[in-house]
Design a protein around this nucleic acid. Sequence first.
DNA 1: TATAGGCACGAAGCCAGCGTTGT
DNA 2: ACAACGCTGGCTTCGTGCCT
Length: 763
Amino acid sequence: MQLTFIMPMYWILDVSGEEEYNEVEVWAVSEEGERVIIKDEFYPEFFIRSGNFEEDVKIIRTLKGVKDVEVVERTFRGRPVKLIRVTTANVRLEDVADEVRKKCNHILDVFQDDVRFSNQYVFKKNIIPSSWTLLDTEKAGYLNGYNLLKLNRLCSIEFEKTVFPELRVLAFDAFFYSLKGSPDPEHSPIISISVMTSENGLMNFSGDEKTLIKSFLDFVKKFDPDVIVGFNSNRKIIPFLVERSRKLGLTFNIGRLDGEPRGSVYGHQSIRGRLNIDLYDLVEESPEIKLETLEEFSQFMNLPIKYDTIEEYELAELWSKDKTRVIEYLGQRVKGIFEIYKLVDEYIFSLSQLTCMPSDYVMAASTGFRVENYLSKLAVERGEVIPSRKEVVHISYPGGIVRSPTPGLHKNIVVLDFRSMYPSLMIKYNISFDTIDPEGPISIPNSTIRFSEREGFLPHALKRLLEERKRIRERLNMLPRDSPERIVLDARQKAVKVISNAIYGYTGWAGARWYTREIAEVTAALGRETILKAMGKAEELKLKIVYGDTDSIFIKEDDRIKELVNWIEDVLGLEVKVDKVYRTVLFTEAKKKYAGLKDDGFIEIVGLEAIRGDWSEVAKIAQREVVEAILKMGVDEGVRVARKHIDNLLNQRVPLKQLIIWKQITKSIEEYEATAPHVEVAKKLIEEGWRIKPGDKVGYIIVKGAGRLYTRVKPYFKVESDEIDWNYYIEKQVLPVCLRILEVFGIKESDLKPSKDLTAFFQ
DNA sequence: TATAGGCACGAAGCCAGCGTTGT
DNA sequence: ACAACGCTGGCTTCGTGCCT
């Protein structure tokens, strides 16, 4: 019988635990806004497939740390299996698993010994982080001023309550003092820490270092934030503050219980009882943000924050000269961090709910692990055992088809897009690791692989995601534009899309627990078939195809497009939509590069140098203007614009900042086989005390001189204007990118460069 | 603690061919 | 006369960052 008394509802902030003590620690916020710790007992488990159950069970029972042993039924990749379930107590799971591997003689497989304690708990108890949950608890005392509760029973998750609670948010950032090179906690003091909260506004801590740290920590304690948000806090700021505090004999305890932040999985710094969110993680997954700076991120989010940017190399010097300006800039940064956070929190919590990862972890985790967590949760729900992570060799397979574009200008081009092509194909053909069946009724054109009819794990996951997205969007469309619920729902549908779009790629990822190359391969093959069939039909209908890539077709506007769309939906059984219409679109000979003019006058540039992060600003601006001129006015205007930019360089009228070329260091310096300009710059910087790790970007300028390019590069902040090799920027930057566009219209290099007869050039 | 493959394009690296230079 | 040297052009490989 269902009890009807009112049970308190909590929003799950964070789940963590101590495996050795079988103690789970859940931090939550009640509906009334009280912050509580909820403790629960939990015994993690792993599974063994054995060749001799009787004997192995006997041995396992004698092992230290084994609480319970039972033979259970599960499925593994869809097939029923009998497994030994080992429940452990007072030990680390992996230690018991290692012992089992050593002592038992008939082990065929071990499962789930590598699934983290808190994950096991969340999956098994069906707890959804960042969501409202009815909990049956009893009071068990106080801890550091927080009500400590003991969990009796988890009741139910309140899916209907979508709006998140009011959390206390603290944005922060810090500057360190280093005259030369990157700061290091051993020698570089903390200059200043700034914080911003909605209640207290902007605050700054400067002055004596020890006092500064103490007052910052005091403030954190007093304000008691649920969320601490920074930019580059996981990899840089927090580890630095922890180390530096230690050096000064202090403990950087910013958690709700005593202790320092702990380095955790995915490079995340775990702060007890609080969510530690690093916005840099979001920058990394937003390809639109090239330089990955906070300034660029703010701009990308359309925030009207003005930054008086100070770069790292000039910070120390400026600090001695003008402290106010440095503190001012730090304040601008913190404000930016705070404002950005307010725009992305719904998305973060949605991803957290979906993947069942606490929100700070889900931010730090990459796409593959988010997908994997989502699938793992589903697996436990379905009695499917989670495979271990194995090291395998990956052989790549053919992917999508790209059609060569018809070069030139095209008027009125319709872009037809398949809706979620790969997910749809996986659903349509029931493609999954657990449905591969040589005798199965579902055959794949041009392939020997076959699938069974019983709904597979991945199609099930995908259907759930697609239905969820549809449901959310239906609800969303009924709500007023700016309503909080609508914003939450919109964030949620985006999160769902991210996960469902990544499932195909996940199956082809060698690091995945459910890595199944055949699945990815056959899905890609079906994708190729689909687009080829669609293009064939388009041609049959006498439609003019201009270009196509993987799941999109660019077609000259025509009434028969409707017919094509219907045919694709009826015959191929897949959804297509008109994604956009270009009034004019420009193609060169190259694939994956074009520029289109939309009806509203907006110019969309795809793939061209103008949007790449590894070209100088001057070249990017020049190309963008040439493209715009051609699309809006004509080729002559394009030529004029290109000449103007070349002329600017000839007369050295371009600001140094526009000459910087930024390139990423993608691996450790020793691993580079070839000598490259950006690597040489990195080497120089390292010699001078800068720390450069993979993922960092170096900015350089080409200076005058002879020989290889890598002998003529300098870090941008060391270049004097009389050293600049202006000719390089003409010949190797502006000219090639402009010519790439103008060549399509028969313009040659000589048409852009000043001839001996100057009157002809400046006409 | 890397979702996948396809593609363009610059610079380096290598080699053959050829002219110049020094002995 | 001829080896040593250096330049040039053609081709391949490395490296980055984009597209769907």
